[in-house]
Amino acid sequence: MKTKDNSGWIFVLPAMAVLGLIGLIPLVTVVNYSFFEIFILSSRFWVGLEWYGELVGSARFWQSFARSSLFSMIILLIQIPLGIALALCIPRGRIWIGLSLVVVALPLLVPWNMIPTLWLSLLNPETGLLGRLGVVLGWPLDWKDSAVHTWVVIVMMDVWHWTSLVVILCYSALTTIPAAYYQAAAIDGATPWDVFRFIQLPRLQNVLLMAVLLRFMDSFMIYTEAFPINAGGPAEATLFLAVDLGEEIKAFNYGPSAARSVLYFLIIVTVAWLFTKAQGKLEEKAAP
């Protein structure tokens, strides 16, 4: 049991101060800006919910919203099961564990703005490794004209970049399972599937929630990586939510970009809240 001790607040105070300064104050500022028309910061006038109305009323917003949701869904459906599976595949033995984790984690070290460049050069039909193979196998040279092909490339890139994080998270949770559990399962004659379902999966739950949250947020708001692949095209087929926000911020449209920011933030927080709720329900079911 933890001791009941409200002096804990003193210990978290520094963290609250830092996050308050760089997180909470900017967030409040954004909410504030979203209700104003601002040309320069010293002269602004109240427009109320006008920016929000404009956004919610625009077809472009809902289309990119649908695209981003679909993208996040695909990413989660691929990366979470793949991450769990790969974590289970990591062999025993100190050297192999270390080696596997190091190789798998390498993509996390590439600067984000270089990731599209890497993939574009990989897919280059004249000099790229995959590109030249693609020419032989019939992958079209003009894949940028096809929405499906562009999606495949972006999804593949994201899987390459981020699956490792899921693997590391899952693997760390798996290492907490005491050996006695496996011995007991072996005595009971449990199949590998049973071991996974009743011993390993329950241990993964908390860490998986974190992995899902992180992956959902980062894929839903994908910005730096997706845009350079095909500039949101063909015909805006890969124009995700964050691209419009980035454009508005670059153009210094304070009001509309702030309204957009608030809206995106609300979407993220709502979904995160739903995930935590679902997690709570699952735990209640598991331990009545």
Binding site: I22, P26, V30, L214, A242, Y264
Partner: peptide, 23 residues
């Protein structure tokens, strides 16, 4: 409080760029 902290981790940086720059 712990959840609030995690919420800052999942806040997309793009959302906060403008005010962070001003601040």
């Amino acid at each position: 409080l712990f959840l609030a902290f995690i919420a800052f981790r999942i806040t997309p940086p793009v959302v906060l760029t403008l005010p962070v720059f001003q601040l």
